[in-house]
């Protein structure tokens, strides 16, 4: 692991303890298996170490974690050419919210029809249950832009069989 300039060991330790479970849970859902999820955790932390100034500059650092974890997972999935499995239900994952599990199942049916951006937005909206404002924060977009994308996504989803 390369050194993280400007971060001492206690700071790295604190970041690891705080964010690892969040990153892992998100990656586990998107990647569908433990090994790939841990690969994603490592890559997210490598990005965090090397972009920690930007990360720490976030008013809500968790939005950075959500965004980068989602991007890393989709990149890994693209590299493995297993995108179709990106949103499949994870049977053995500790379920926090039954509604989210149902949403994942529905999204898995749509995975073949949504592009990467739409899957990202759908993940944040329907799996994570974020508000449009939070999705805009996570993706670094204006609320107006994300509103348009959500409208387009809803129309596409309705054509494919409804919304969660």
């Amino acid at each position: 692991m390369a050194e993280a300039p400007g971060l001492d060991k206690p700071a790295l330790e604190a970041l690891f303890t705080r964010y690892t479970p969040v990153i892992y849970r998100r990656a586990r859902v998107l990647m569908g298996n433990d090994a790939d999820a841990w690969d994603a955790v490592q890559e997210v932390f490598e990005r965090m170490w090397h972009h920690h100034e930007g990360f720490r500059g976030e008013a809500r650092p968790m939005t950075w974690v959500y965004r980068i974890t989602t991007n890393v997972c989709f990149n890994l999935l693209r590299g493995k050419k297993v995108r179709q499995a990106a949103l499949r239900p994870v049977a053995d994952e500790p379920t926090i919210d039954a509604a989210s599990a149902e949403a994942r199942e529905l999204l898995s049916k749509w995975a073949a029809h949504l592009d990467e951006r739409e899957q990202t937005v759908a993940t944040l909206l329907y799996i994570d249950g974020l508000t449009q404002e939070e999705v805009a924060d996570v993706l670094g977009l204006s609320r107006k832009t994300i509103g348009r994308e959500v409208d387009a996504l809803r129309k596409k989803a309705e054509a494919l069989g409804g919304l969660p």
């Binding site: 692991m1 060991k9 790295l12 330790e13 690891f16 303890t17 690892t20 479970p21 969040v22 892992y24 849970r25 433990d34 841990w38 955790v41 490592q42 932390f45 500790p94 926090i96």
Partner: peptide
């Protein structure tokens, strides 16, 4: 519930291995 999940996850061998890999 999330806090309990987080604590349990951090105690897993996989998380400890990742900690060792990232933090030495």
């Amino acid at each position: 519930e999330r806090q309990a999940l987080n604590a349990r996850l951090l105690a897993t061998p996989q998380a400890q291995a990742m900690r060792a890999r990232l933090l030495g």
